[in-house]
Design a protein around this nucleic acid. Structure first.
Lengths: 189, 189, 189, 189
DNA sequence: AATGAATGAGGATTCATTCAT
DNA sequence: GATGAATGAATCCTCATTCAT
């Protein structure tokens, strides 16, 4: 029972944060959407903050899994780079509510150490993934490139929150690839 | 008296948002920091939301002024581009509390139309500034470049909130210039 | 539990309005008298206004029930008229706190549509009860008589608020009967 | 200056009470309508309650003056009775805002001794006026008649607050005269 | 496992009133 | 005489959290 309930709550948390657009969601809202009482939500997660953190972990795990899956199917640094980008802006990750939750987690990370840690892990993992592709292609410039690309990806997420209409992952990938193409002339197609 | 009080409140709002790291600041906190009673704060601004919006306007105005000033002193598209970037990451704008406030305003923009509008104005202005520099340098690619550069700037702001220690504007400018150098070979030094 | 709590709150509302003499009672006062926290009061009634309306309904329901009961035991239009009057000024309705609440509900009815509606229902019901007795006794004059009698009853309630000492329902009934006796010579005893 | 200001405030008080429908008017509202600052209102009247009392006195004085004027022009108990009624429901007294204020003053009288005293004076004066007319016409029944008529008048005022549209003084006078006609067969026309 | 019941703590907002000018 | 400036006190309402069942 427990994993089912927790999972429902995590998803409800993300949904509600996405719906409200901020962390000002009540435990009642979340619990109601997850089909249970607020008391039960507290039973499974000790506090609202724990729910937020679990939701964060969920989002970052999904993202990580998607990247890993995409990498497994890609051959060569060039293809692997594109795989990372496509995974980053795949419909599963780059959807309105997830983007909104993600933005709010950034806010959370300013105050809650565990949230900060989670986001740091994500950044490190992304950077390491990028680096392993970029090193063979850009050599000493790989570090700077990875930093720029990481920031660009986050910026593209950020800018999505202002847009209306459904997220356009393809355009985002395009912008990121454009960056790469310029930096790695002759490589990334 | 009114402009003095309002100004103090606006600054206190930014400071408090930066200190707390979220919009969950109480009017009392803001008012106390501004050296007045919460009642007076409500007297000058109708509501907490109005204070937030005024603070947003303040930050965006400062930014706009700094960019305008930097542009005025720059000759040629290349120098103007660098001026925009330097202004964007100048110590006045790229300071912890302002970055934190700015992030939270992004959250606000999801729900509050006026906040959304303000952020949209900022984006449009930035894009138009970038375009006027990029067109002579990149021709048809200017639009794509401006979008990428805009997202990159926002991403660099975003990533600043996770860093510890004082913001490093120079490094940020460097990363952005790196992007430009690759895209405009032979121009931006 | 809910009906018990709500009932306690409704009674406490009436008591407090009677005690304070106006609608300027705080939810805390009401809740305390009802033996619970203000938060719980808000839980059961969405707002203070809802509490007021429930209290109004309660008073008018009590009144209606008492009239109905009295009518059931009365035979003939003449006896029924006296039954209505006796019920109107019975100790249950014509008690200080209820009269005070009733006066304040009249104030409320000026602004709150639902309160206005409730009072209108009461007036209509009273008039219809009076009419069914008066028609056989006064024929075409029944309407005018019912209007006068209704206003007289309300006026007697109103004047009660200024009096000191316990309400004198008997005297009120007497005054009303006096009115009737004059209008219906040879009927009402 | 003082009498002018005070007069303006008194009138503004009545207007605002009529507009809002309750005593929950702010001193600011009253002062603004009277064309001055809230501080000045406090300068002339020590407190909000004093303003209310002055407004009450104003309304009761107007009423008293109108009755006195009408009585001066009437000959004989019968005509004097009709004069009192006509004055009671004259357009000057029986207007929406005055009726609303009057109802609220009744509420005030429950708590504020001076308000209670003012209303008692009004009742005594009305009763004495009625008595001097009724004694020659009804002898020993005069007291009961005066009480009934007084309550009826107040009840007609009360019922006016629920009505929509402009007050109908003529109908009210009619209802009261109807009462008298029945009680004094052969006298009041 | 599940929840209804309950509350303490807190926060935005309002307003009568004061006072220096 | 007149007011802008200022605030303490109050009030409604919300919500995370607890607990008995």
């Amino acid at each position: 029972m427990e994993p089912i309930r927790k999972d429902a709550l995590v998803k409800a948390t993300i949904t509600e944060i996405g719906r409200v657009g901020s962390l000002d969601v009540t435990v009642s809202q979340i619990a109601r959407r997850a089909g249970m009482s607020p008391a039960l939500a507290h039973h499974y997660f000790g506090s609202k903050e724990d729910m937020f953190l679990a939701a964060m972990r969920h989002i970052l795990t999904l993202y990580g899994a998607e990247v890993r899956g995409a990498l497994a199917a890609a051959e060569g640094p060039d293809a692997r780079l594109r795989a990372i980008l496509r995974a980053s802006f795949s419909p599963g990750n780059f959807r309105r509510e997830a983007v909104s939750a993600w933005l709010n987690f950034w806010v959370l990370a300013q105050t809650v150490p565990e949230a900060r840690r989670l986001l740091a892990v994500y950044q490190r993992r992304l950077r390491s993934n990028l680096m392993s592709c970029l090193r063979p292609l850009a050599g000493a410039r790989a570090g700077a490139l990875a930093d720029g690309l990481g920031a660009l990806i986050d910026g593209l997420y950020l800018r999505e929150v202002l847009k209306s209409g459904p997220p356009d992952g393809v355009a985002a990938v395009h912008t990121a690839l454009n960056y790469l193409n310029a930096q790695l002339p002759g490589n990334a197609a």
